[in-house]
Design a protein around this nucleic acid. Structure first.
Lengths: 147, 147
DNA sequence: CAAATAGTGTCAAAGAGTGTCAGAAAGTGT
DNA sequence: ACACTTTCTGACACTCTTTGACACTATTTG
């Protein structure tokens, strides 16, 4: 499980140190792809391959399916760590994530996300709406009690 | 069951001794997350994992699901005790809880909470006010027989 | 082929996190 | 009241992680 949030620096070559605790959980490296909110999503190898399988089973006759496959696969990169625990984020992913010198690394359970500091602070602010949150929590509490 | 309140110190590195009686009830460690009142909530392992499992079943193609996962996981930490019974509270949680050198540890049944001394004394004042309390919780049924 | 650019490896320093221990304080039992 | 045990705390030493710098290799481009 990936938890917590880290602010890390990116060096002049576009390399980012992945938190040591995250590396332990994805020791073979990660698949990095474009997220849905101008962020990047990192999946451990195995997990991404599962998602890839699920996608492959969807029918290519559905235009939405084709678009989703293109989004996920064309923007994906398989990355491994160097001896200092860093990955090199490809330039096109840095661009889509608007990531320059500092970024946020965000644990979200089975994967983690990489955000520009600015976009993350906006996203985090949107989590502070008590009304929305109570609805969000309600959704999960129901399923926690049910079944 | 977690009961009572304790005032404990946090050392220069951000470590907090968890009361021995609380450790007995969460021997494998705790999940610490952001609360709703600028406090922190500590759940025993099992309880939090129930919530995490429910989340994993929701699809990330839904924006509300993504927000919920970020809200819960990014503000959570899985913490275990060192040999002296202490946990290290991550810096970002110390910040959200406004916790510096001394804090209150508050038992609330199936979980316990961590508060800054200042915020806790405000909270305690508000829920100890006999005037307000006489009618405040009239709608909540806590009888042993009820429901 | 040469030059420019992109990518990789290595190292050392700063900082963050962890382990250990002894003393103070609080609690327990006789 | 006293001795004993447990718990918490502060200090210190140590390890691990991250970062920036520099040197080197590979790839692309003209």
């Amino acid at each position: 499980m990936f938890f917590g949030q880290y602010e890390h620096n990116i060096d002049a070559k576009g390399r980012l140190t992945i938190p040591a605790s995250f590396r332990e959980q994805a020791p073979e490296g990660i698949y990095l792809t474009e997220g849905f909110d101008s962020n990047l999503i990192a999946y451990p190898k195995q997990h991404f391959e599962q998602i890839a399988n699920n996608l492959s089973e969807l029918s290519i006759t559905d235009p939405e399916t084709r678009a989703l496959r293109r989004l996920i696969f064309s923007n994906a990169a398989m990355l491994t760590y160097d001896t200092a625990g860093r990955i090199l984020i490809p330039a096109f992913l840095r661009a889509t994530g608007q990531i320059n010198d500092t970024c946020m690394i965000i644990g979200v359970g089975d994967s983690f996300e990489i955000w520009s500091v600015e976009l993350w602070s906006l996203e985090a602010k949107s989590h502070n709406d008590p009304q929305k949150n109570s609805n969000r929590w309600a959704a999960i509490n129901i399923s926690a009690r049910g079944n």
